[in-house]
């Protein structure tokens, strides 16, 4: 199923909650905590992450080795991956009336592809099948903090995360800062145009989580819990 109008609301009984932000912005931690809480309240929750499927991971590996990947094919392959996840995993629970929590959504592609020079209007068209979420939480932090978090937790910075394919710098850390800076500028732009709920993610985990729960209260009012989906009364 492909939407005719990009970015229109889905109109399904479920709710689509999206977590966006730079790597190391704390969004995954928050998404997991929120999912736990929603489940404990009796809601049916479906959680999905922006992970490359086997299909795309192997293509990207091969493309990288042969030097075949360009910003365009890179963009389209991620779209393939997301479309597959969307049609298979996101759409059915959304139609069935679940709270669908997405750790990254089409916006991740918008910012990455724009940073690689793809035409933003074209990228939006490609993702026209992805409906506008009920909430997009954008976890906003300075790039320097994400880098510090990465180093502190001894996570390796990968080639594409650092935008090394763009040849911004030969130094991995310098390239990372430049590339992530570009992503952040794109996110900040989208925050305005697409009405993101901006979360100051430099604060404590507990504080942020409390804000999220408070923010969702109105949206959850009258939203059926799991029991009501399984039987009447």
């Amino acid at each position: 199923m492909i939407a005719n109008t990009p970015s229109s609301h889905h109109g399904f009984p479920g709710r689509l909650l999206v977590f966006e932000g730079l790597d190391g912005s704390g969004k995954s931690t928050q998404a997991a905590l929120l999912g736990k809480w929603l489940s404990s309240r009796g809601y049916r929750v479906f959680f999905t992450e922006w992970n490359s499927s086997d299909l795309v991971a192997s293509v990207i590996r091969r493309g990288k080795k042969k030097g075949l990947l360009t910003p365009t094919t890179f963009s389209l392959l991620h779209a393939v991956d997301f479309a597959d996840r969307f049609e298979r995993q996101i759409l059915p629970p959304l139609r069935a009336g679940y709270l669908v929590v997405c750790d990254r959504y089409a916006y991740t592609a918008f910012v990455r592809d724009a940073a690689r020079g793809c035409d933003p209007a074209w990228v939006r068209t490609i993702y026209a099948f992805a409906p506008r979420p009920d909430r997009v939480f954008y976890f906003r932090v300075p790039v320097s903090i994400t880098l510090r978090r990465k180093i502190a937790s001894r996570l390796k910075i990968n080639y594409y995360e650092a935008g090394m394919d763009l040849k911004l710098s030969d130094d991995l850390y310098e390239s990372y800062e430049k590339f992530q800076g570009r992503l952040k500028r794109e996110y900040d732009r989208l925050a305005k145009s697409d009405a993101f709920t901006v979360i100051d993610s430099t604060r404590r985990v507990e504080q942020i989580q409390q804000d999220l729960r408070a923010d969702l209260a109105p949206l959850l009012q009258n939203f059926p819990t799991g029991a009501k989906l399984l039987h009447d009364g």
Binding site: M1, I2, T73, E87, F129
Partner: peptide
């Protein structure tokens, strides 16, 4: 196993390549 959108985009990736 692939949906309509997914297959259309996979062909687009192939064509772009």
């Amino acid at each position: 196993t692939l949906g309509t959108t997914t297959l259309a985009l996979l062909y687009a990736a192939d064509f772009a390549d």
